[in-house]
Design a protein around this nucleic acid. Structure first.
Lengths: 344, 344
DNA sequence: CTGAAAGCGCTTACAG
DNA sequence: CTGAAAGCGCTTACAG
């Protein structure tokens, strides 16, 4: 068990000062070539690597990014993490991930934990509960301390910071329009209870598309699902009545659920019922029939979020404390429609 | 922009020494009550929180766990992370996650990066490439430095450390047996090229189940898939010949693929073809028909892995360097069969 | 060309 | 009861 070697040990071993070792390893020309090479050879032999923690303390930056997301077992979020990780690694950053489990308290706790020096900046997506409460003090606080925050997907207008989002309303509009273009007239909306920002915007897009196309808006065709495992009867009743010939689901889980119910009832998708879903994931790709979706490019969201954060981090170094007004940007990532079997 | 407050600032403000502040905040009875309360009140008011990095450096432990996995966009691994995170948080640890992308080089890089003081111990699952190469020097090195490693799922016998696995062979055996119990005679195996340890074990279980039941082993019924997007013809040909009436797939992606091909050809699942898959995930649950699977309880694997690691971390503190032989354990997590529509 | 000193933010054994 | 000192592992401005 050979413990990691430190500058101190190398110094003692080689009978020089710690400063000399440090400078040699950083290739300072202050140090004579002979000594420098000797130290470097020795360090290499013992696999010397500087201690990250010591560097962090000294430099007052950790070269790590904190990510806080509601859920990791969720294709979209995993995808975003992938995107962040990619850019982070390219720039010599690590990522430390905390899950809020959609709980306000966990989100606060995790942020406080990470904010105490462990990371240089945050990339986060709000928990449902946080959106519900509308309490963002923990985020304000972190920002006030000078730690940059980039929000993605589930963001809020109440916080001034960089944001990476998609245009939920417009994308929903496009999805519904595509159904209309295929001649569907009675389009239902399968949505959640609406305190989550994105759910609301998607509903808005749906409503607008109907209106712009002169289609009647029918309150009864807005189906709010609280619990997926428990919505079969409601949906079955509506299907029974042939109340609609197409459905726009705000997520793929809802989409596959209605497809399965329809299947059981002998209703054919897409012939009798066209289905389109928001958020492209694993389910849509492998469902039978495969499901048309609006893709949220998670990788790209992650990439962009990481780039913005890192840029801010690195620029801070120079213009330290220049009191120009902070100018935050909101980047809108393009979505697009993937047409699959469910809309034929 | 009020930067985080430090002990030093509090000390200056209150005109006492840094030591006094530190002790007061840690409630040392060395300090007089009056001073202690005064300091505490002040600290509270300014939201003082100790700097994690400084603590890490001082204590020579970071209270964070490094996780290295091949892929995060993969239900099983996300699930394990969830399990780890849960236990970690309960014990005041954070997790820092790195992805190897199934690349040996990235795995090595990430390990070296984290090993330089950023974390106290590893939980990891080997990348495919690492398993292929059989090169584990990076892991040995970390262990030699005294940093505990817990491996899960994709492990190797070449490294002595704690492990959390399932019994792949036995579980595969069980899955195949269940098909036999339902009267299936010609059972195909849908598998990968076999350098990944678990793939091999699952194949062994398949073979053994056939043998124990006196069923003929037919080389032609072992279908090795290199690329899922590209296997349709092979499978279709075999299906055409009615070469088999059941299939055991080593993952759910293969299972859903064969179901879709069968569906196209008018072959009924489960009537004409029963399908069972290894690893329960999102796809199996929402496929049509839903797919019977062997579940790998990722949450539990994560829980157990985290518990083992933390226990080792905390026990190290006491018996520091007691040179008793390290005794490593391998925990086998129970799997079980979830019967769904695909095996009726 | 080399090294002692100060410092990043903290803790703790030791003096007083 | 309070504080100065040493130290975790490093870097760098400053002496010599």
């Amino acid at each position: 068990m050979k413990k990691k070697v430190t500058l101190k040990q190398i110094a003692r071993e080689l009978d020089v000062s710690i400063s000399t070792v440090s400078k040699s390893l950083r290739n300072s020309l202050e140090i004579g070539e002979e000594t420098r090479l000797k130290v470097q050879a020795f360090a290499k032999f013992y696999h010397y690597k500087p201690n990250n923690i010591a560097l962090s303390l000294k430099n007052r930056k950790t070269k790590t990014i904190g990510i806080i997301i509601p859920e990791i077992v969720h294709y979209f979020f995993s995808t975003v993490i992938n995107g962040i990780e990619q850019i982070a690694n390219e720039n010599g950053y690590s990522v430390i991930i905390c899950l809020s489990d959609d709980s306000f308290d966990k989100e606060v706790l995790n942020m406080e934990m990470l904010a105490n020096g462990s990371i240089d900046g945050f990339i986060m997506s709000l928990s449902k509960e946080t959106q519900q409460k509308g309490d963002f003090h923990h985020i304000t606080e972190v920002i006030n301390q000078g730690m940059p925050v980039v929000m993605f997907d589930r963001v809020t207008n109440d916080i001034l910071c960089d944001k990476v989002i998609i245009n939920d309303e417009l994308s929903a509009y496009g999805a519904v329009q595509s159904l209309i273009d295929k001649g569907r007239k009675k389009i239902a909306l399968l949505t959640t209870v609406d305190y989550v920002s994105v759910g609301k915007f998607r509903t808005d897009g749906y409503t607008k598309a109907l209106r712009d196309n002169g289609l009647a808006f029918d309150e009864n065709l807005i189906i709010k699902i609280e619990n997926v495992d428990n919505c079969e009867i409601t949906i079955a009743t509506l299907l029974e009545d042939k109340a609609f010939d197409a459905v726009f689901a705000v997520n793929e889980l809802f989409a596959v659920t209605i497809i399965k119910i329809a299947h059981k009832m002998g209703i054919k998708v897409p012939e009798d019922l066209a289905v389109i879903a928001f958020t492209d994931g694993i389910i849509s790709k492998y469902s039978t029939p495969t499901i048309s979706t609006v893709t949220q490019n998670g990788i790209e969201m992650g990439n962009v979020a990481a780039k913005i954060l890192i840029e801010r981090l690195e620029s801070e170094e120079k213009e330290l404390e220049e009191y120009e007004e902070e100018i935050y940007k909101t980047v809108v990532i393009e979505t697009h429609l993937i047409e699959r079997e469910s809309t034929n």
